[in-house]
Write a protein that binds this DNA or RNA. Structure first.
Length: 649
RNA sequence: GGCUGGGUAGCUCAGCUGGUUAGAGCGCUGGUCUCAUAAGCCGGAGGUCGGGGGUUCGAGUCCCCCCCCCGCCA
C-alpha cells in the first residue's frame, strides 16, 4: 500500500518559525508511522520560491533573486536536517523538473479549454499578490488583508475556469466528508464555494520571477500565478510532466496545511486536479496557529518563538512531543515554557522515564539485568489485554489525525505499568522467595515499555530507539509486527543500565520573552498566572533587592486559639491575632511537633500578605514561619513578646 | 450584518443516536509504598454542564429565545 504525505512548500520570504516546525513534525510523524507499519511511503516537503514578493525582497538585499531563494531555501532544508525530519524529497519550485511539470499542466488545462485569455483589471495588492474587488477594499483603497495600499492594475491575463468546478467541488465535498479536516473547516470551505466561484487569473505580466508559460503558447511576457505554480509541486515532485515514475504515489493520503492556506488547497487545488483528470487527495488537513504565552506572535512584538532555540534548550523530540500532545489538531495552540516544562516533567520524566528506571533498578537487584517473558502471561493476563486494547485505540487516533489523543491514549500504558508494579510489589515477592512472580512483573513492565516505545517511535524516534536499546531490541517493521500486531512478548533479554532519559526540568531553560511583550500584556489573568507558576523574578546572581524583600509582609502574631484538624495528622487550625480587626485563621502543618494547647497564647511570625489558600477545605490566611532540619521542626518566634501585628524586617 | 463551530471542575478538554450519584489529564490537597528522576500508588476537595423558557417519566445531550467567544464570509 502506498502512502504519500506532504507539507506545504514554505514560502522563502522569511525563515522557519514554529508553525513551519509544527506542520513538519506532524507530517514526519505520520510518515514514520507509515514506514514502520510497512507501507510504501513518500514524504514531501520543500520551498515555494516564486512571485513578486521574493523578487522584491532579493532586490532589497541586493542579491540575485535565485541566490536569495537559494539561501532561504537552505535554511529550511538545514533546519529539517537538524531536526531529523525524514523527508524523502525536498522540492523547490525553482527546480527545472518542477517548472517543466507546471508547464505541462498549464498546457493540458489550456488545451482542454479550462484556461483562456482575457483582461484583468482590478485593485492589486503586491504584498498579498491578490486582486481585490472594489467592495472589499478598506478606506483609501487599502488591502483588506494586510492594510497596505493597492494599485489599479489592468493586464492581459490567462484565466482558469474555476467557476466550472463549483458544482463538481460541492459534490465532491458532499461525497467525501473526510476530505477536509477538521470538520469545522470543511463547513467554511463549503459555504465559500456556495457563495460562487469566479474564474481565477493564473498569469501575470507585471513581474518575471516565476514559471513561464509553455513555449508553444508564445507568451514570453506571462508568468504563472504563484499559487498555480506552487500547488502543482505535489505532483511535479512525483514527476508529473517529466519522468513520471513516482506518479503511482498519487493521490496523496494526507496533505497538511495551515488554516490560512486551506482555501487554496481545498478549492483551487482540487479544481486543478479535476481539470488535469487526476484523482483528488484523501485528506486536506488544516492545523491551527501557535501563540506565545497567550499572545499572537509577531516580529514587532519580539515574541516570536524560534524553533531552533526551543530545540536547543529542551531537545527536538521533547519539543515535538509537546506540540503534538498539547493541542487538539486543528485548534490553535499556545506555546509557553511553563506548559512545555509541565509536559516534560509530568509525562516524560514521571510517567515514562521513571518507569523505565524502576525496572532497570529492579532487574539489576533481582536478576542481574536478565529478564525473560516466560511467566508474564501467567501472572499478568489482564494488563496484557488492556494494553493491547489501548494500542489499538491509539492507532486509530493517529489515522484520524488526532495526535494528541493518540499520545494521551498511549500514556495509559505507562499508568498500567506503574500500577502493576505497585500492586504486585516485586520487592515483597522477592522477600517471600517468590522470585518468578517478581520477575514476571519486571518483564511485564519491560514489555509494556517496549510496545509503547514502538508506538511512540514516530513522535520521538531517537529517544525511543534508546529505550529499545536499553530493553535489548530494535524498533523496526519486524518488531512492530511482532509486538503490536501479533501481540508477542520480547524473548529473554538483558536490560542495559542507562542514565535517565528525561531529567526533570526545574526552571525555564530559555530567556523569557522580551519585557516589552510582558508589559504589553496587562491581562491581569496572565500576570497572576505567571506569579502563580512562580516564574522567577530573581536576577541572575540570585540576589533580590530590599524592595523585593519588603514585598513580603511578616508580622508578629499571637495565637488565640488552636485545634487539631480532623482526619489530618499534620495540620493544626490556629486563630492568630495580627493586630487587625479580627483574628486570622491559619492552617499550619506543625501538628507533629506542637500540640494545639501548647501554642495558645504564644507568639509566632506570620507571612501576612500571602494569598489565602485552602487546606483540607479550610481557609488559611497566612503562613507561620518555622525552621526544619533532620531533628525536626521548630517555630520562629520573637525573643521577647511584641505587640500583635508588629512588623518583622 | 449573514453563516459555521463553541461556551462542561482553577487550567486544557472528553461526554455517540436523551437514561443510574457528569468524566479525564494537569494543578491543589490528605495518606501510603520504597523498585524508581522529591518519581509511583490510593483517597479528597472543586461543576446551578453560559442564562431563561419548553418537550419528556427523564436533558449537558432535543426545541425556542437571549448573552458571550473563535472562525469564515459580507
Amino acid at each position: 500500500m502506498k502512502n504519500y504525505i506532504t507539507t506545504p512548500i514554505y514560502y522563502v520570504n522569511g525563515e522557519a518559525h514554529i508553525g513551519h516546525a509544527y506542520t513538519t513534525f506532524i507530517a514526519d510523524t505520520l510518515a514514520r508511522y507509515s514506514r514502520m507499519v510497512g507501507m510504501e511511503t513518500y514524504f514531501l516537503t520543500g520551498t515555494d520560491e516564486h512571485g513578486q514578493k521574493i523578487e522584491e525582497s532579493a532586490q532589497k538585499q541586493n542579491k540575485p533573486t535565485q541566490q536569495f531563494a537559494d539561501e532561504i531555501s537552505a535554511t529550511f532544508h538545514n533546519l529539517w536536517d537538524e531536526f531529523n525530519i525524514s523527508y524523502d524529497q525536498f522540492i523547490r519550485t525553482t527546480d527545472e523538473s518542477h517548472k517543466k511539470g507546471v508547464q505541462a499542466a498549464f498546457l493540458k488545462m489550456f488545451e482542454n479549454g479550462d484556461i483562456y485569455k482575457d483582461f484583468y483589471e482590478g485593485n492589486y495588492c503586491v504584498s498579498c499578490e491578490t486582486f481585490f474587488p472594489e467592495s472589499q477594499l478598506m478606506d483609501g483603497g487599502c488591502c483588506p488583508d494586510c492594510g497596505r495600499p493597492t494599485t489599479i492594475v489592468k493586464e492581459e491575463s490567462y484565466f482558469f475556469r474555476l467557476s466550472k468546478y463549483e458544482r463538481p467541488l460541492l459534490e465532491y465535498y458532499e461525497a467525501h466528508p473526510e476530505f477536509i479536516l477538521p470538520k469545522s473547516r470543511r463547513n467554511e470551505v463549503i459555504s465559500f464555494v456556495r457563495g460562487g466561484l469566479n474564474d481565477l487569473s493564473v498569469t501575470r505580466t507585471s513581474f518575471s520571477w516565476g514559471v513561464h508559460l509553455p513555449e508553444s503558447l508564445n507568451e514570453p511576457r506571462h508568468v504563472m500565478y504563484v499559487w498555480l505554480d506552487a500547488l502543482m509541486n505535489y505532483v511535479t515532485a512525483l514527476g508529473y510532466g517529466s519522468d513520471e515514475s513516482k506518479m503511482n504515489f498519487w493521490p496523496a493520503n494526507v496533505q497538511l496545511v495551515g488554516k490560512d492556506i486551506l482555501r487554496f488547497h481545498a478549492i483551487y487545488w482540487p479544481a486543478f486536479l479535476m481539470s488535469l483528470g487526476l484523482p483528488l487527495p484523501k485528506h486536506i488537513a488544516a492545523h491551527g496557529w501557535w501563540t506565545r504565552d497567550g499572545e499572537k506572535m509577531s516580529k514587532s512584538k519580539g515574541n516570536v518563538v524560534d524553533p531552533r532555540e526551543v530545540s536547543n534548550a529542551y531537545g527536538v523530540e521533547n519539543f515535538r512531543y509537546f506540540m503534538m500532545r498539547e493541542v487538539p489538531f486543528g485548534q490553535d495552540g499556545d506555546f509557553s515554557q511553563r506548559a512545555l516544562i509541565d509536559r516534560m516533567n509530568s509525562d516524560l520524566s514521571n510517567d515514562l522515564g521513571n518507569l523505565l528506571n524502576r525496572i532497570i533498578g529492579m532487574s539489576e537487584k533481582y536478576s542481574d539485568f536478565n529478564v525473560d517473558s516466560s511467566h508474564v502471561a501467567q501472572y499478568h493476563v489482564k494488563e496484557l489485554s488492556d494494553v493491547a486494547e489501548i494500542l489499538k485505540t491509539a492507532e486509530t487516533y493517529l489515522f484520524e489525525l488526532q495526535p494528541h489523543r493518540y499520545l494521551e491514549e498511549l500514556w495509559r500504558v505507562f499508568t498500567i505499568g506503574n500500577k502493576a508494579i505497585e500492586e504486585h510489589a516485586p520487592w515483597t515477592k522477592v522477600k517471600e522467595g517468590r522470585l518468578d512472580e517478581a520477575l514476571a512483573t519486571v518483564a511485564l513492565v519491560a514489555n509494556l515499555l517496549a510496545k509503547a516505545s514502538i508506538m511512540l517511535h514516530p513522535v520521538m524516534p531517537q529517544t525511543t530507539a534508546k529505550i529499545a536499546d536499553a530493553l535489548g531490541f530494535e524498533i523496526s517493521t519486524e518488531s512492530y509486527t511482532a509486538l503490536i500486531k501479533n501481540g508477542d512478548l520480547l524473548k529473554a533479554f538483558t536490560i542495559k543500565k542507562i542514565p535517565p532519559l528525561f531529567p526533570r526540568v526545574e526552571e525555564p531553560l530559555m530567556a523569557e520573552a522580551p519585557k516589552a511583550m510582558i508589559e504589553e500584556a496587562p491581562k491581569a489573568e496572565a500576570k497572576a498566572k505567571m506569579e502563580d507558576k512562580k516564574v522567577s523574578t530573581v536576577s541572575e546572581d540570585g540576589l533580590i533587592t530590599i524592595d523585593q524583600f519588603f514585598q513580603t509582609s511578616i508580622k508578629i502574631g499571637t495565637v488565640l486559639d488552636a485545634e487539631e484538624v480532623p482526619k489530618s495528622s499534620k495540620l493544626l487550625k490556629l486563630k492568630v491575632d495580627l493586630g487587625e480587626e479580627s483574628p486570622r485563621q491559619i492552617v499550619a502543618g506543625i501538628r507533629e511537633y506542637y500540640s494545639a494547647e501548647s501554642l495558645i497564647n504564644t507568639q509566632v511570625c506570620v507571612v501576612a500578605n500571602l494569598k489565602p489558600a485552602k487546606l483540607m477545605g479550610l481557609l488559611s490566611e497566612g503562613m507561620i514561619l518555622a525552621a526544619k532540619d533532620s531533628e525536626g521542626l521548630c517555630l520562629v518566634r520573637p525573643e521577647k513578646p511584641r505587640l500583635s501585628g508588629s512588623s518583622v524586617g
